[in-house]
Nucleic acid binder design. Structure first.
Lengths: 175, 175
DNA sequence: CCCTAATTTCTCTTTTTACTGAAATGTCTG
DNA sequence: CAGACATTTCAGTAAAAAGAGAAATTAGGG
């Protein structure tokens, strides 16, 4: 069952982190760090660090258990909540630095050494990432239930859109 | 300028691959493997492997140059094309295995050892992942220009949707 | 076919990242 | 405020990934 965690490797999180998340998600009750270390057979300190990371992503939370001094942890149960957290993290780790990097590259755009072709590519890239960045942020701000509606509609939103705007353009629109 | 490539580390691609892509994207003309190795100061073999990876992602392509026996390479210039390629790769590397892993976990869903709570979580996760997977695929199949329209609209699609369906539901719709 | 140039494969080294176990720090209880 | 238990930090080790350079393979041109 916990081979679930192996999958996390693909996701830019290390095995321990993924395994712990999976364990907590499929656990009856909140677990202590010690429980986790025992169940997964990994070092206590490793658990500590992985928990910290999961807490930072807000994919798990500490819960107090009456009559027990130790910290107990449980997974975020709401899948939309989870997805949003992951998406936010990814934006921060992947998209934001990209936008910054390209913005930086744009600073010397007027350098005469840069050919027209390259300049044009840089500008296009910049526009592109900025647009995507804005979109991504907007989507993160839309309540899950509405996103769900959008997703359920799938590509039908496209036809709907065409219907509403009254056109069936196939080329990017010339703003 | 080529610190652009450093950014690729975040993206699950190694430095060399990212740098080569950036170099080609910002290059006046197609380059040979040797050119690339020289410009970036990395081993010829490394270039070879990185080019193979970029070719696999279809982010670059071989182009023949008259009177030169060597392979020349140029970057995919269409940003939408690029984004689609990356998105496809990600789906294959991240989403598909996840769907498979959860589907596998679902096989022993009837095991009486599994509590109701856990069972319910598994099912919810499975539904969720399947839905997202389907949606992602559908979006990949929509022509870039139309996606662009969607993205440009941003969260306004949500209001539009609410307007069209005639309701302002805040809860997930009960299919 | 053979010779040469180009590319790829393979093995070994370097670098990076993950993990462990011990030591240090923190925290609750009497 | 001491003593026990819990957690975190840290330094060293182990594992994984990236890269270099030599050797092997492939593909033109005579």
């Amino acid at each position: 069952m916990l081979r679930w965690g192996d999958m996390g490797t693909q996701w830019g999180v290390n095995r321990s982190v993924a395994q712990i998340q999976a364990l907590l998600f499929l656990s009856e009750r909140p677990l202590t760090a010690e429980d986790i270390a025992a169940k997964l057979g990994i070092a206590r300190s490793n658990v500590s660090n992985s928990l910290k990371e999961l807490l930072a992503w807000k994919l798990i939370q500490r819960v107090p258990v009456l009559g027990d001094r130790r910290d107990h942890y449980e997974a975020e149960a709401d899948l939309w909540q989870m997805a949003t957290k992951v998406a936010q993290g990814r934006k921060a780790r992947e998209i934001d630095p990209m936008v910054a990097a390209i913005a930086a590259a744009m600073e010397n755009i007027d350098d005469p050494q840069i050919s027209a072709k390259v300049r044009q590519r840089l500008v296009a890239m910049h526009d592109f990432v900025s647009t995507v960045d804005r979109w991504y942020q907007q989507m993160l701000d839309v309540p899950p239930a509405q996103i769900m509606t959008l997703i359920r509609m799938g590509s039908r939103v496209v036809s709907l859109l065409r219907f509403v705007t009254g056109k069936g353009r196939d080329k990017a629109d010339p703003d």
